[in-house]
Design a protein around this nucleic acid. Structure first.
Lengths: 113, 113
DNA sequence: CTGTATCCTAAGGGATACTG
DNA sequence: CAGTATCCCTTAGGATACAG
């Protein structure tokens, strides 16, 4: 694998690029929370246990920039904003499921629960 | 999903546990470099482009502790040490391949190369 | 050849408070 | 309801040097 540049930084392999899209503690849980369809901010916050406002908003902005989700604002009062997976976001779900499955295997393996 | 404790820290979901096994910048590239069989330190270092001694040794120790790889020392001169995937390590390869595939898709998508 | 140890920086992420 | 802004701390990871 040759190195490559993308948006101002150097990557050494495809896995690093994947990390920038779905890496970190919170991106995957948020994407999973969107798998069933449109979800609004407050619901998202409740669904993704323990996430702070700061991390939720920063993850949402980042995923939006990377075209993994869309953000739709409804001109209502109080305001309603809904988030939804794009085609690329849906594609990532398969990968995340794989990670998730491995995690469940590890839980069994280690006798947790 | 309920929270759970494992080796002294709290996890909120299976994905966090997976991260602790194969997360970070280097664990996956190192595991991939071992997929074909036993590999010794120097070869590993060359195979995993750009990794420093510090990160390589720290990743190897961590993976060993988590039973993802084994370390075998041969009493030769100069010393020879070989690393190899365990069954659990081999299981992780499927997951990593999935991440890797997504990365290759992203590369195409973004017109890199 | 196969590591260890030390120092240092950047970035991820928690806590808290505030706003249209 | 749906964010933003600010402060702070921890940890991943780079650079460098040294050792059996």
């Amino acid at each position: 694998m040759k190195d490559f540049k993308f948006e101002g930084r150097v990557y050494y392999n495809p896995i690093e690029l994947t990390h920038s899209y779905i890496g970190g503690t919170w991106k995957m849980p948020v994407l999973l929370a969107l798998r069933k369809g449109s979800v609004r901010y407050t619901v998202l916050k409740k669904t993704v246990a323990h996430i702070s406002d700061k991390m939720l908003y920063s993850v949402l902005r980042d995923l939006e920039k990377k075209d993994m989700i869309t953000r739709t604002v409804f001109a209502e009062k109080p305001p309603r904003v809904e988030y939804r997976l794009t085609a690329l976001g849906r594609k990532s779900i398969k990968v995340i499921d794989s990670l998730h499955g491995f995690g469940e295997y590890l839980i069994k393996l280690n006798g947790i629960f």
